[in-house]
Simulated assay, not measured.
Amino acid sequence: MKVFKKIMNAVAAVENCILVVSTLLILILTVGNVFSRKVIHRSWSFTEELVVAVFVLITLMAAALACREGELVNLSLVTDRLPRKLKKPSVILSTVLCIIFTAILFWFGMDKVITQLENGKRTFVLNWPEWIFWSFVPIGSGCMILHFIEYCIDYCTDKIKKEDK
């Protein structure tokens, strides 16, 4: 179990680095494009493609890190009122349902990546292969699945401090 936790800590560290670099990239591209439009009177047409794709990556990576803390999909209106002995089963059920949804997201993301690899579809402005940008979906959903499992294990083994104790 300690090995799994070390691996998950490393995954989370990589996700944090991706988030920092991606956010800086979006900041630089957006500010640079605004500066270019206002001062040089030329727009960087490639920024829209990159910013939209990187926003998808940021959204999925941030969602994965939220899964790690059990904060992504958490409507506690019902679960907070459950008796203590029903809380673990509710977390397990919630985790299973979230993993099923995220696995479907992973499946369709991989299908899209494979289809674009086979078709050789490219982006309009940068002329990059589109599968590169679509690969963010299965990568992010794979990280989410791992973190859902991690949270459930931590919760069920009492490694997470619960408010109701």
Rank of each mutant, 00 (worst) to 15 (best):
126 L>I: 06
41 H>G: 02
119 N>F: 15
138 P>V: 00
133 F>V: 00
103 A>P: 01
29 L>S: 00
71 E>G: 14
33 N>A: 10
7 I>A: 15
64 A>R: 08
39 V>K: 06
162 K>L: 03
32 G>H: 10
23 T>S: 05
4 F>L: 15
90 S>I: 00
160 I>E: 01
65 L>N: 10
63 A>T: 12
67 C>D: 04
97 L>E: 01
16 N>L: 13
33 N>V: 06
114 I>H: 08
127 N>H: 11
81 R>H: 13
145 I>G: 01
52 V>M: 11
155 Y>A: 06
76 S>G: 13
12 A>L: 00
45 S>H: 13
152 C>H: 04
123 T>D: 07
96 V>Y: 01
36 S>M: 12
62 A>S: 04
19 L>S: 12
85 K>E: 14
163 E>G: 05
118 E>K: 15
112 K>M: 14
80 D>G: 08
27 L>S: 15
5 K>T: 06
107 W>I: 02
152 C>I: 01
122 R>P: 00
106 F>D: 05
51 V>G: 11
99 I>R: 00
89 P>I: 03
153 I>F: 07
135 S>H: 04
111 D>Q: 15
125 V>K: 11
27 L>A: 15
49 E>N: 09
160 I>R: 04
148 F>P: 00
11 V>C: 09
131 W>H: 09
97 L>R: 09
15 E>D: 12
103 A>S: 14
19 L>R: 04
119 N>Y: 11
99 I>N: 04
87 K>V: 09
36 S>R: 07
2 K>I: 14
119 N>C: 02
114 I>F: 09
84 R>A: 08
49 E>P: 02
88 K>Q: 05
100 I>Y: 00
47 T>V: 12
83 P>L: 02
136 F>M: 11
96 V>A: 09
163 E>H: 11
163 E>S: 14
153 I>S: 04
15 E>C: 12
93 L>M: 14
23 T>G: 13
99 I>W: 08
164 D>C: 07
7 I>C: 12
1 M>A: 12
92 I>T: 13
124 F>T: 09
65 L>E: 04
61 M>Q: 04
37 R>G: 08
84 R>I: 08
78 V>D: 05
105 L>Y: 08
126 L>W: 07
106 F>V: 02
142 G>N: 04
134 W>F: 11
91 V>H: 05
49 E>F: 02
9 N>M: 09
2 K>M: 11
100 I>F: 10
74 N>C: 09
104 I>C: 08
122 R>C: 07
69 E>W: 01
106 F>N: 03
157 T>K: 12
26 I>C: 11
57 L>I: 05
46 F>K: 07
120 G>A: 11
161 K>T: 13
16 N>P: 02
122 R>N: 05
82 L>C: 03
58 I>N: 02
5 K>I: 08
18 I>W: 07
13 A>N: 13
118 E>Y: 13
109 G>A: 10
141 S>T: 10
130 E>N: 07
34 V>D: 12
154 D>N: 14
34 V>S: 12
89 P>W: 05
121 K>I: 04
74 N>E: 06
72 L>T: 06
46 F>I: 00
138 P>T: 06
36 S>I: 10
33 N>T: 13
51 V>R: 12
159 K>L: 09
142 G>Y: 06
57 L>S: 06
1 M>R: 15
54 V>P: 03
92 I>Q: 10
48 E>W: 05
151 Y>T: 07
104 I>K: 00
112 K>T: 13
59 T>C: 02
12 A>I: 03
17 C>F: 15
75 L>Y: 08
130 E>F: 02
44 W>L: 13
